[in-house]
Amino acid sequence: MLKDITLGQYFPGDTPIHRLDPRTKILLVVFYIVALFNASGFLTYGIMAAALITAQALARIRPSALLKGMKPVIMIIVLTAVLNLFYTPGEVIFQFWILKITREGVKTAFFMVLRIMMLISCTFMLTYTTSPISLTDGLETLLSPLKRIGLPVHELAMMMSIALRFIPTLIEETEKIMSAQKARGAQFDTGGIIDKAKAMLPILVPLFISSFRRADELAVAMEARCYHGGQGRTRLRELRYAPGDFAAIGLGVGLVVLVIILSRMGL
């Protein structure tokens, strides 16, 4: 059950999208989000959807994998749809008691839902096609100008990759501890909220303790291999832009400009 978490999952592959530099992909996601928030009509949303579908087809990510990513935010999507549906003023097309549905409401609700779904899909495209290591590498290089104003970029990136690395380990550990406590007669699915919260204690305490122990061991192991922060540190894999990256960034910029112009024209 815990193993089904897809958050930040990476599907290895060798497609044009997978081969793009992680920095390019991060930039593309940023461009895409900017364009998405500028889209306003059927034409612009259509262009945005087409761009997403092209990328998804190129990366050979199954649409079902993208839809699965929507599961955790389904409530937010529904709530957005309902609020927009009933609270947008305009021409009333359906009325029941105090609930009014307007033509504008239907339109905004539809576009808002589309926007949220595309927003989530494009970020999932990033994590599905980029391994966590190259993702943090890319982020670190992109953010490195911020070092000048004292932001510990390398340390942040390192923290991120360590956190990502330990998610599966923690899940495995949790399952093991749960089994062990169940073997001692613990029950996690009965009783009220307070009972359930109390039942978590035998899992959380050992989990915290082993996390601290693991952190300690990791720190010692890193120091033993002479890790001393980002200063003067070289990389195993240097990030280098390829011609494809320039083309992709060009396309991304083009998309933003096109969508902004079209929506200014009211399309």
Binding site: K176, A180, K182, A183, R184, L201
Partner: peptide, 18 residues
Amino acid sequence: VRADVGLVFQYPEYQLFE
């Protein structure tokens, strides 16, 4: 059966919590 069949996992010391 969980009362009648006791199971001690590998490295059981990691399940201590009290």
